[in-house]
């Protein structure tokens, strides 16, 4: 699949002291929703600024839409929409005047710009505030203006830096829905950076995990979950499960069954037997006199995957100097 963003050996060192981005090899496929995950201070925002040409790489290169990105790549940035963390707007501007200003910057003709502004303001639910000064807005309202501004040029690539930061659950849900819609219906490529794992899990198709400036994982969400699959399944049941537990213990490849307070935790001996054993376990459940309330498998836990990957990367020690690509 063609990559919209591609970095090769991308490195950024500030003042010869701080290595913010370290030999980054990253591919963002077209029409994907790429989650860029990392703890605070790991280099996410620096990477984004390198992608946009706001920073000059100390080494390596950035390709966006197949072309190298530089400080004056204004034509390429015409196809990009960027939402920074905590966007800052000029004083005394309203959503309408600001969007009009940005529209002119993008060279959008007036006949297209004005209806687009009206449509965007309505879409982000800022109609009642369209003539109020942005400096008086709440965090959520400011983010909505930022979202409208990053969509005004109908970009092919959206880069969003922590788009749900500071939002309430309704705001986060709306943003997640918007990102999913843009990715699936509008077929845009979306690059979202976040340290909130549940958000990434919710709407991303691909993921890159960065730690201390180094990309420790680059692939799809299922791939990363496979990495930490603990081969366990947890069943929350209602009813007397003693008989069922005895039957599950007899299922081939089940190594351990633990039953405590309506939760049955079943361990399977290896990933190669996971699917087969799971089928038998659920078959037994369907014949038992139990009600299944919920179930979890270890492979759904992205937070564990993330932490395990960071630990694993650290444990490589000096070998990290050899391995180039995640």
């Amino acid at each position: 699949m063609e990559a919209v963003i591609k970095t090769e050996s991308l490195t950024k060192i500030f003042s010869q002291k701080t290595i913010a981005v370290n030999d980054l090899y990253m591919d963002v496929p077209k029409n994907s929703i790429y989650g860029f995950l990392g703890p605070n201070g790991s280099g996410k925002t620096t990477t984004i600024k390198l992608l946009l040409g706001l920073l000059k790489p100390s080494a390596g290169s950035v390709y966006v839409f197949g072309n190298p990105m530089g400080m004056d790549s204004a034509n390429m940035r015409r196809k990009i929409g960027y939402l920074p963390t905590n966007p800052i707007f000029p004083d005394k501007m309203t959503p309408i005047t600001y969007l009009d200003f940005i529209g002119k910057i993008f060279g959008i003709p007036k006949a297209i710009r004005i209806p687009r502004i009206a449509e965007l303001i309505r879409s982000v639910d800022l109609l009642p505030l369209s003539s109020s000064e942005i400096r008086k807005f709440s965090t959520g309202e400011i983010t909505r203006v930022g979202i409208a501004a990053c969509l005004i040029n109908n970009p092919e690539l959206l880069i969003m830096d922590e788009p749900t930061l500071g939002l309430d659950p309704i705001g986060r849900s709306s943003t997640a829905k918007l990102i999913t819609e843009l990715g699936s219906r509008e077929e845009k490529t979306i690059f979202v950076s976040s340290h909130i794992l549940t958000d990434i899990d919710r709407f991303c198709t691909h993921i890159g995990i960065i730690n201390n400036g180094k990309l420790v994982f680059n692939g799809t969400i299922p791939d990363v979950k496979k990495l930490i699959r603990t081969n366990t399944v947890e069943l929350h049941v209602e009813g007397d499960a003693a008989a069922y537990v005895r039957k599950v213990k007899a299922v081939p490849h089940v190594v351990d069954v633990n039953y405590f307070r309506h939760v049955i935790r079943i361990s399977i001996d290896g990933p190669q037997n996971y699917t087969g054993a799971l089928l038998r376990i659920f078959k037994e459940l369907s014949e038992a006199d139990l009600e299944l309330i919920s179930f979890n498998s270890g492979s759904e836990n992205l937070e564990e995957a993330f932490l395990n990957l960071l630990e694993e990367e650290k444990s490589y020690g000096f070998l990290r100097a050899i391995s180039k690509k995640a």
Partner: peptide, 10 residues
Amino acid sequence: DSLLSKSVKR
């Protein structure tokens, strides 16, 4: 940053 991340040359 906001302006230079758009189609504005330095």
